[in-house]
Each structure stands twice: as C-alpha cells, then as structure tokens.
Design a protein around this nucleic acid. Structure first.
Lengths: 140, 140
DNA sequence: TTATAAATTTGTATTGTTTACAATGCAAAT
DNA sequence: ATTTGCATTGTAAACAATACAAATTTATAA
C-alpha cells in the first residue's frame, strides 16, 4: 500500500518540500485525470493567488526527474502529468481526448525489447482509439 | 515485402497524390531517422523552393490520419514522423536525443489491454534510457 | 538574534511550434 | 471557356514552454 500523502511522497523521492510543491503534489495525487500544467495552475491559483506558472512547470518537471511523477507525451498538443508511478498503461480517446489508466497486460513483465543495445530507464505503453462513451454516442 | 515507392504508398492509403505529397512521402520512406516537420521542410526546400511549411504540417498529419505514417510524440519538444507503419517499438536516448526503431518483443501480439472498455486503433510502445554509445562515452 | 548564503518562487520577455484562415493556384469535369 | 473542388501558399495569431533576473523565502552560521 503506497502512501498517497503529498509531503511523505516528496520526502520519499528526496524532494525538498515547500508550500507550492506540496500543493502541486497533493493535486496530482487527488486528481487522477492526468492534468496539464495549465490545469494545475488554474486549479491551485484559487488557493495560492501568487502562484506562478513557471513554478508549476519547474515543479512538475522536478517531480518527473525524481521519479515522483510521470510525464506523459501522448497528446501531441500538451504534456500531461500522472501522480501514479506504479507501472501501468494508458488509453487516449481520439474523439473526446480523455486520458485514462489501463492495467498492464499480464504478459508484459516478460516483454523485454529484442536485441536491445541500450539501457532502459522508462517503458511507456499506450493505446489510442475510441472510448466506450464516444462509441455509444456515435450509434445514436 | 512492402512497396516503398512513394506514389504507390499514397495510393494504397487512398491519398490523392501531388508533387508535394509524393516528395514528402518519398523523404519519409528514404530517411528512417524519424524526421520532424522542420527537417522535412528544410530538406525538401532545396528541390521545391515554393514549399510551404503549412503544407508539410498538413501533409504529415494527413498521412498519419490515413495510416500511411506514424506520428511519434515521444520527445516532448517536437513531434516526429515515421514512414514505417509495420508494428515496431522505439527507443529514445535521453542524452543524445536519438530515436531508433526497436523490434517488438515476441510475446507482444498477445499483449492486449486488460478489461478494455474501448476500441483500440493504435498501440504505442517505447523505451527511454541511455544508448550504448552515450554509455560508452560516460565511461571514458 | 542577526547576518549571510542558498534555494525557491515570481513575473516578464522571448522563443519556437503549431494552427487558422483567406487568397491563390491548379486540374479535372461540365 | 467556365465552373467546381481540392491543394497549396503565406501571413497572422494562438499557445506552450523556456530563459532570466529580481524578489522572496528558507536554511545555516556567526
């Protein structure tokens, strides 16, 4: 059972805490919607009016570098962030743009790259297509 | 053996050919370096001086929509394009930024998403890490 | 406590990619 | 020859992301 407390999470990843960093990590942990920088910035701006967008950029990048968050480049328009760092895949609906978590296929552990002449630090698996709710709308 | 002729490729994917489209597809097929829009634009500008960057954007997007090319969003800085559409994975070196093709693990065909309540149209698998040549440099 | 140094945050200016859109060009069909 | 429709071009604009320097906060040492 992983600890989803913002402060603890920061400390576990060796990130020095601050009001802004705790708030941003807290947002990530509580909103599994894969928010963009702007979404985090707008949402937290209500509580921290002085918050700078640059801080959100820097902080999310910092989290990703320390492995405390995942940077997702699935949508070519904007980078999204994911506070869940346990291995999982993603699905993006091409119609509504929603991004959701997907359990990894069971066989995936054994799926190592063939003839790899490189050191793997991150593995990314994602699917694109049409989500159920968009498919249902199309039939109406 | 797939046909790597530009005109034939366009027709196979139902894309109406034009001088620009043929040139762009030809470039993709002959340069497996996963070029960006700008790289294609600069390279073809020598032969087609009137070429517009907008056309390159539109055309590569069109190719991707028709399945004649793959849009890669691995590097968060820029979108790359891949003329190879047979299933394969990618590796990006975090140090030198190079992007290369990787053979899919054999078990991957059976790797379907678990409990998928969506229609999969594309599957993307890639790795990030350090390539051999960068790792060698680090040891010097 | 006070002074000093280090780290963090802020805000503005800037860069660079991508899109929107209107005008133009071109080729096939009538 | 005219029309129709798609493709291309080029400019303007939107927008994400970064650079940077000033301001603020926090930590450390005297």
């Amino acid at each position: 059972m992983t600890d989803r407390n913002a402060l603890d999470t920061l400390q576990r990843y060796g990130i020095h805490p601050s009001v802004q960093r705790i708030a941003i990590m807290d947002y990530l942990l509580k909103h599994c919607t894969h928010p963009t920088v702007d979404e985090v910035y707008v949402a937290l701006g209500k509580d921290i009016p002085t918050l700078s967008k640059t801080t959100v950029y820097n902080t999310l990048r910092l989290f990703a570098e320390h492995g405390a968050a995942q940077m997702l480049t699935i949508d070519e328009k904007k980078v999204c962030f994911d506070g869940t760092v346990t291995p999982h895949a993603h699905f993006m609906c091409k119609r509504c743009g929603r991004l959701m978590d997907v359990q990894l296929p069971g066989c995936f552990q054994e799926c190592q790259p063939v003839g790899a002449d490189f050191i793997v630090e991150e593995t990314h698996l994602y699917y694109k297509g049409i989500c159920n709710s968009c498919a249902a709308k199309a039939n109406a």
